[in-house]
């Protein structure tokens, strides 16, 4: 009874809350990191070093008036932020934060579930998130959001192809779709997959930036061009949901990249004898560290690079990333067969 119902329930609650808190603090982290890059201080007023800023933001956003434009499609307008947020959260169901550990005398896996199609599950759930963006822009019944949502959805669909093709080569390398088994296979092969598939790693990273609508691919919310993008008409907590979903997606992409390429919860070089002291750091700690490193790169890129233009972005996706991804699949297949 405890094993089948209670423990998963506790894990779900824990992961959900941890994610939501993590997401709000991502906002603070982003503001801080970018501020440091730009020789500023970032938020400093709420709490020491602005540490309570996310709470203040949340309170502010919840208390704000929630406006629905008169000519908007009311139901769709309300549903859109939820459609964006939910997929971002439920992907965490299959992300392995650590192996099976002994907790209070019980064998507890540090993941909610291990589906045998884990990777595909993430991809498919992420593809649902597009709806929120399209519908948000359409339901606002306003020109700029519509334009932005069209851009965003076309971008997401195109880069989905590239990312999925990249994942295919990873699946071939790992020989499984299960997230847990992918990590285990990295342990078995004595190598993180970043060293096996460096091209796929770069492709996945670029695709991930585009999939999460982050700079330099943040076309959908290019505030200099489209005054805010598809969520222009949103206010209060609904706006916040779009915002939080973006950060949640960033965390998802980082976690997936960590799992696929950086050995998930494994300590660096787990098979090298003299580095075994690294194993004393808990496995979930390694996972968080690697994910965090990824997130940092996300922010760093945003602070450094200008924005692509929409057509250039599509060209990059279709004419560069997808061909390379397909070539990578072919090469992976050939190597797999030969060796």
């Amino acid at each position: 009874m405890i094993d089948t119902y209670l423990i998963p329930l506790v894990k779900i609650l824990f992961v959900l809350n941890a994610t939501l808190i993590g997401v709000t603090y991502m906002v603070l982290l982003e503001r801080k990191v970018i501020a440091w890059v730009q020789v500023r201080l970032g938020p400093m007023r709420v709490g020491p070093y602005g540490i309570l800023q996310p709470i203040a933001d949340a309170v502010k956003l919840i208390l704000k008036e929630d406006i629905t434009p008169t000519r908007a499609d009311k139901w769709v307008f309300t549903a859109a932020p939820i459609i964006v947020m939910v997929p971002a959260l439920i992907t965490f169901a299959v992300i392995p934060f650590g192996p099976v550990v002994n907790l209070f005398g019980r064998q507890v896996p540090l993941y909610i579930t291990d589906v045998n199609v884990g990777l595909l599950y993430i991809v498919s759930v992420a593809s649902i998130g597009v709806y929120g963006i399209i519908l948000g822009g359409w339901a606002s019944n306003s020109k700029f959001p519509l334009l932005a949502s069209l851009r965003a959805s076309a971008q997401l669909i195109s880069y989905e192809v590239a990312v999925t093709m990249t994942l295919v080569s990873m699946i071939m390398t790992a020989g499984t779709l299960s997230m847990v088994k992918i990590v285990e296979s990295q342990y078995d092969q004595h190598l993180w997959f970043i060293f096996v598939q460096p091209v796929a790693f770069v492709l996945f990273f670029i695709g991930g930036l585009a999939e999460t609508n982050r700079a330099p691919f943040d076309m959908a919310e290019a505030e200099q061009e489209l005054t805010g993008g598809f969520h222009t008409e949103y206010s209060g907590m609904r706006f916040a949901l779009f915002f939080l979903a973006e950060y949640a997606n960033m965390i998802v992409v980082s976690s997936v990249a960590t799992t696929l390429f950086l050995g998930g919860w494994l300590a660096p070089f787990p098979n090298v004898g003299w580095l075994s002291f690294l194993g004393y750091v808990p496995s979930w700690m390694w996972f968080l560290l690697k994910t965090f490193a990824f997130l940092y790169v996300f922010l760093w890129v945003r602070a450094t690079l200008p924005r692509y233009r929409y057509d250039q972005l599509m060209r990059l996706g279709w004419k560069v990333l997808i061909p390379i991804a397909i070539a990578n699949v072919v090469v992976t297949g050939i190597v797999k067969v030969l060796f």
């Binding site: 199609v117 599950y121 498919s124 593809s127 359409w138």
Partner: peptide
């Protein structure tokens, strides 16, 4: 049939219907 389920979501819900939506909206 988890594989089929995931593919159903990925291809139909996440891909094809998005195109329907494009057409309907545009």
């Amino acid at each position: 049939a988890q594989f089929l389920a995931v593919i159903q979501v990925l291809v139909y819900a996440g891909g094809i219907v998005v195109l329907y939506l494009f057409v309907v909206m545009l």
